[in-house]
Write a protein that binds this DNA or RNA. Structure first.
Lengths: 189, 189
DNA sequence: AAATACACTTATCAAATGTTAAATTAACTT
DNA sequence: AAGTTAATTTAACATTTGATAAGTGTATTT
């Protein structure tokens, strides 16, 4: 069930046969129906997720408004890092936007494996590094770009998201209102 | 010279005596005059910096405009992570905004120590995790807050920066023009 | 003191975005 | 297919922010 995911992992960082087996034993699979929360607001992040198929987002509420922090495609690491690393409850939720199949790994088990399998620790450290770099790039997109420019960047960088996600989620992800997004889309490019 | 920095490190993650000594041997100190670049655009990030005193920023040029990505106070890890983790030249520079004293660590030496001193690897992994979490929080600030709200948040979170950095740098950090920042400051709070 | 450069503010107008409400379209239920 | 709900677009107006230029203040140099 998790062969595809392990193959993906090994592209990022090599694993010994025994590490691969140990890691495989931690991976669980689930089917999640559209619109359901994978993790809810208030829960402390103790599980890492990867989609096998579908689309997910992380969101939270700010002054009563639903704000989408990010979209996640298959094989992307999905975690609320600010909760995981601090061990504090997250104010964010993870929601599946389509019927999805999900791989999950409990961090308590994973961190235990770190002690005996250094290559596993390296693998996940790398994945978090990559997530960190993407977050830095997102700041560059938000900073000093107009709403229209941010929209154009999204069409280039994540066309799949644009095709699948409701516009209201895309709007808050770009930091604008849905009305404003509609206007931008109406313009001839 | 580096005792203060090591004490700071040990607050983040414990180090054995031998690790502490090994790490100390990598730390170099420099004095850098105001306005000088610590690292220049085009260089690949191969050094980690920590200020002993002073203030620094990371900046880059976007369409000819100077954009400040972040400000860094003493004891903060300063690195251009997107360059370090990818091993690619950075389009960003690190600049000192006041006469500063700087500790630096060459990553090639540091990563070599990782092999034999796991606690050192853990320490720096933690520091990067913390930097990652701060980056996530910065996105929350940029997303769906007005310029004025972002300014108010900065006055709360980093009053030191506000006191020391030129307004033009603060403006681009907030993603607005200097004129706009001036208007916001003129308002009665 | 005069001259220069730099940092910051203010004024004016244009453009972009937010707010609210209504209209249209698409999706889903029965 | 009709009815219902949700998603998206459009319109009208208010507010914010950008762009440009001019003005003020401060520091430095000569």
């Amino acid at each position: 069930m998790s062969n595809q995911l392990l193959a993906h992992f090994k592209q990022i960082s090599s694993l010994t046969v025994s590490s691969e087996a140990a890691l495989a034993s931690l991976i669980q699979t689930h089917s999640i129906p559209k619109n359901q929360d994978l993790q809810q607001i208030g829960q402390t992040c103790k599980t890492l997720y990867f989609l096998k198929k579908g689309l997910a987002r992380i969101y939270y509420f700010q002054d009563g408004n639903d704000v989408t922090e990010g979209f996640y495609l298959p094989f992307c690491l999905i975690a609320r890092a600010e909760s995981l690393f601090a061990g504090m409850p997250s104010k964010k939720a993870i929601q599946v936007l389509e019927d999805a199949e999900v791989w999950s790994i409990a961090t308590s088990d994973l961190f235990f494996l770190y002690e005996t399998h250094r290559d596993i620790e390296r693998l996940f450290t790398r994945m978090f590094e990559q997530a960190y770099v993407q977050t830095i790039q997102r700041i560059e997109n938000l900073q000093f770009h107009t709403a229209e420019e941010r929209y154009r960047l999204l069409t280039q960088d994540q066309p799949d998201v644009l095709r699948k996600a409701p516009l209201k989620f895309i709007a808050s992800y770009l930091g604008i209102t849905q009305v404003s997004l509609s206007r931008i889309r109406a313009k001839k490019s």
